[in-house]
C-alpha cells in the first residue's frame, strides 16, 4: 500500500459519505442521478463477489469492500424511499435522469468478454465492473449538464470521486516502479475514467475561477 492508494481510497470513502450525509441532512435528492447510483450497486456487487470465495487479501480490503457494497445499496434505498416522502422531487429526479444506461451496460459486457484475465465467471464479472465503473458517472454528468446549474452537493460528490480516480494513477505508476506490478485492465479503464472526470474538472475550474456557468459539453 502506498500513500496515493490510501488517499485515493479515503477520497472514495469521503465521496460516499458526502452524498449520504447531504441527502440526510438536507432531506434533498435534488441533482442526484439515480441511474449512476444504481450502476454503482451493480459495480460493487459484481466486483466483490470474491468475498464469497473467502480468499481474503486483508482485513482492510474486505472491510472496504463490504462498506462499498453496503453504502451503495443504502444510497439507492435512500433515493427510493424519497418516492413516498417527496414524490415531486423523486419524479423530477427520474425525469431528469435520461441517460441511456443500457449502452453502458451492454458496452461494458462486450469489453469484459473481449478483455479479461481469464474467461471465467468471476473474472468476466470483475472486468465488467471495471469497465462499467469507468463510465458510471456519465448519467450524473449528463444530468448536471442538462440542468445547467451547479448543485453544491453533486459538485462536492463528483469532485471527491474524481480525486479518488486521479490518485489511482500515481498509485499505479508507483506500483509499476516499486513492485513491478501492472494491472493492465485497471490502468486502461482507469485512464478512460479519469479523462471523463478531467472534463468535469476543467468545467469546474472554469466555473470556480472565472465564475462562469457550469455547462458540460
Amino acid at each position: 500500500m502506498n500513500l496515493f492508494r490510501i488517499l485515493g481510497d479515503l477520497s472514495h470513502l469521503a465521496s460516499i459519505l458526502i452524498l449520504i450525509r447531504t441527502i440526510k441532512a438536507t432531506d434533498s435528492i435534488d441533482g442526484i442521478s439515480f441511474k449512476t447510483q444504481a450502476l454503482y450497486v451493480i459495480i460493487f456487487f459484481t466486483r466483490y463477489l470474491d468475498l464469497l470465495t473467502f480468499q481474503h487479501i486483508s482485513i482492510y480490503n474486505s472491510l472496504m469492500k463490504l462498506f462499498f457494497i453496503g453504502s451503495s445499496l443504502y444510497i439507492v434505498i435512500l433515493l427510493q424511499r424519497s418516492k413516498a416522502i417527496q414524490p415531486i422531487a423523486y419524479r423530477e429526479m427520474i425525469m431528469a435522469d435520461t441517460f441511456k444506461v443500457q449502452y453502458l451496460l451492454g458496452g461494458s459486457l462486450i469489453m469484459a468478454l473481449l478483455f479479461n484475465y481469464k474467461f471465467s465467471f468471476f473474472e468476466i464479472l470483475w472486468s465488467f465492473s471495471i469497465w462499467l465503473e469507468s463510465v458510471a458517472i456519465l448519467p450524473q454528468l449528463f444530468m448536471l449538464s442538462k440542468s445547467g446549474k451547479s448543485k453544491s452537493l453533486t459538485i462536492h460528490y463528483i469532485f471527491a470521486l474524481g480525486i479518488y480516480r486521479t490518485l489511482y494513477i500515481p498509485n499505479w505508476i508507483w506500483r509499476y516502479f516499486v513492485e513491478g506490478k501492472v494491472d493492465k485492465l485497471a490502468v486502461i479503464s482507469g485512464i478512460v475514467q479519469t479523462l471523463i472526470y478531467s472534463d468535469f474538472f476543467y468545467i469546474y475550474y472554469k466555473k470556480v475561477i472565472k465564475g462562469s456557468n457550469l455547462q458540460l459539453p
Binding site: 481510497d9 470474491d50 487479501i57 484475465y117 468471476f122
Partner: peptide, 10 residues
C-alpha cells in the same frame, strides 16, 4: 481455489 485471480485493489 487457485482458479481465482487475486485483485488487491478496490
Amino acid at each position: 481455489s487457485s482458479s481465482t485471480i487475486m485483485h488487491d485493489e478496490l
